[in-house]
């Protein structure tokens, strides 16, 4: 069975307990305003173009049969509507290889066994100080493939974690529950408006309630602190209620990732994150105070 991923962090300090290898799976059914991997949302990432690495040699222009690339007056333009994701331009680009460079098609579909062979040495190295985290996109959308991968990990006694939105039906979690040591659960109770969305809340509560009752399983509650989205009192109250109902005493407050615009630029999407940035850090401090005064501790890795 194949698994579809778009990135591997070989060692990360911020994605679960200890030092972990993070596998980022393609596809997500949500579109969070603060998503820092917008290219992960679809079935397959569009062509990424990092203009800073382009030497404007024109090799991509010549190689492309669909006329996606033009370089006029030293400006490299990409007509994405025409792109067939064939990868010919990457092969032709002297500043890119299969993995990185000016032009990248990050999404790869690989047999789970083959992928595991590639990850295994690093996982065995990190075994005593961390493990694997499967992130995304939304990994639960590939639950069957993830299950195979986690089984392989468990044969090697690797600690496993999954980062998920919680906004997916419980039956998906059931497929994986016996193979996961830690759930990194992103609390996302709003759509892209500044109010709690009842429908989301319902699915999320069910997932949380299911996961928090699993034996020998740790829940890591990750709360994004994004101005104009989820920094209002009603939101915090709701989060607190969910935490208390499910006996969770610890949260990881996540600030907006300041490098988010990087990938939006690379996929040619306009993106303005002015209203997402917590310039004075005051929203973050407020959130901190709120949870601390309500006897919830802050997560430290």
């Amino acid at each position: 069975m194949d698994i579809k991923y778009f990135n591997i962090d070989w060692i990360s300090n911020n994605d679960g307990p200890g030092k972990r290898l993070v596998l980022f799976l393609q596809k997500c059914h949500l579109e969070c305003a603060w998503c820092h991997s917008p290219h992960s949302q679809g079935e397959c990432s569009p062509l990424l173009f990092f203009s800073g690495l382009c030497i404007k040699c024109g090799a991509c222009v010549d190689s492309c049969t669909s006329n996606v690339h033009t370089i006029i007056n030293d400006v490299h333009q990409i007509e994405r509507g025409l792109c067939l994701l064939c990868g010919d331009c990457i092969k032709a680009c002297p500043s890119s290889n299969e993995e990185k460079g000016a032009l990248v098609l990050p999404t790869k579909s690989v047999d789970v066994n083959i992928l595991y062979k590639k990850l295994r040495p690093q996982l065995l190295m990190l075994k005593d100080i961390g493990g694997i985290t499967i992130s995304g996109g939304e990994p639960l959308l590939q639950a069957e493939a993830v299950k195979l991968l986690l089984k392989l990990c468990k044969q090697d006694d690797i600690n496993t974690a999954i980062e998920t939105s919680g906004i997916i039906s419980v039956k998906n979690y059931k497929i994986l529950s016996s193979l996961v040591d830690t759930w990194l659960l992103g609390f996302r109770l709003t759509t892209n408006e500044e109010k709690i969305d009842g429908k989301l809340l319902k699915i999320f509560s069910e997932s949380l309630s299911y996961l928090s009752k699993l034996p020998n399983t740790q829940i890591l509650a990750r709360i994004p602190v994004i101005p104009n989205h989820n920094t209002f009192d009603e939101y915090y109250n709701k989060v607190l209620e969910l935490l208390n109902n499910n006996n969770i005493q610890n949260v990881d407050l996540l600030k907006y990732n300041a490098h988010t615009s990087h990938y939006y630029k690379a996929i040619g999407k306009d993106f303005n994150d002015k209203e997402l940035i917590d310039l004075t850090n005051s929203k973050y401090e407020n959130a901190k105070t709120y949870f601390l005064t309500n006897k919830i501790t802050l997560y430290e890795n």
């Binding site: 591997i8 070989w10 060692i11 290898l21 993995e99 990185k100 590639k118 990850l119 040495p121 690093q122 996982l123 065995l124 190295m125 990190l126």
Partner: peptide, 10 residues
């Protein structure tokens, strides 16, 4: 050296 140190060591 960008695909996991362990792959080299392996």
């Amino acid at each position: 050296m960008d695909k996991g140190i362990a792959n080299l060591l392996n």
